[in-house]
Amino acid sequence: MKGVEVYVEGITKKYGSTTALDGVTLRIPPSEITTLLGPSGCGKTTLLKIIAGLEPPTKGRVYFDGRDVTNLAPEKRNIGFVFQDLALFPHLNVFENVAFGLRVRRVPEAEVKKRVYWALDLVGLDPSEFARRRIHELSGGQQQRVAIARALVIEPAVLLLDEPFAHLDYKIKQRLLLQLKRIQRETGATVVYVTHDQNEAMAVSHKIAVMNNGKILQVGSPEEVYEKPNSSFVASFFGEANVLPGEGGFIVIRPERVLINPDRADTVYDAYIEDVVFQGPLLHIEARVNGKIIKIIKPRNGMVVKPGDKVRIGWLQKDVRVVPE
């Protein structure tokens, strides 16, 4: 399977007087996982639905491998979609749910069986055990996998996932994210993944597009976006950040780059330790400088600070990023 390149150009979507998307242009590379990351209401799900053809854009075009598909019906786009509420068909068993896209494509019975079993295997559900089960007999995580298998079985040009793991608990979520990466590697599909959870985005993406208020603020690899945020919003939404007013706008300094009692630093302040929280191997420290709280994250080994301590904190100029807003 070879994924297509998706290109959305100048997409605007209005519902009455509210603007859900405001002139969004984005190139989604083939055979990679691209994440649309943003708070709820930022327009990420709307963009996904426009790519799928479930919503028409008010303005703008959608291209698959350079072909204009803006006016193509969703059923003709060859898309795999995993819905937020999964949207599994309650009247069909696991096998028939997965087979749905093949049945409506009039795929011969023997081929249907082969491919459904392949898809179930791919998501780690044993076909001999699960094929005949009813949907309501499955756990949340198993239902997720059926939804993914249903989307994969048609060998889609693009696989779209709308917050598919939002309602699962942490451990199952981690396992499914790893599985999704593996499936993407094995199938080479183009994947667009929508989430509001930065940890999911970091874990799964080749490329992240951070969205807010109907606009794409920054696109890049997780490392790029983390190291070089182009705005205070991106800095705070993707990872933790201290955002301080400075020359030419704001300066952004990541908590793990803040030094305590440094031998050498470009900027140094006197500070009080307000709070110290243990988070596994890390210490989350809050220090007060001139009435402002600075977040600091340090490995636990060797670090001895407690609330009330008077310390000096500082950072190196190379770790500071200046953003205009």
Binding site: A52, E75, K76, G80, F81, A87, F100, V104
Partner: peptide, 13 residues
């Protein structure tokens, strides 16, 4: 649900 119908459409129905 709305998404059940969307799902059917997306998968080619």
């Amino acid at each position: 649900s709305r998404s059940a119908i969307d799902a059917a459409r997306v998968f080619g129905a």
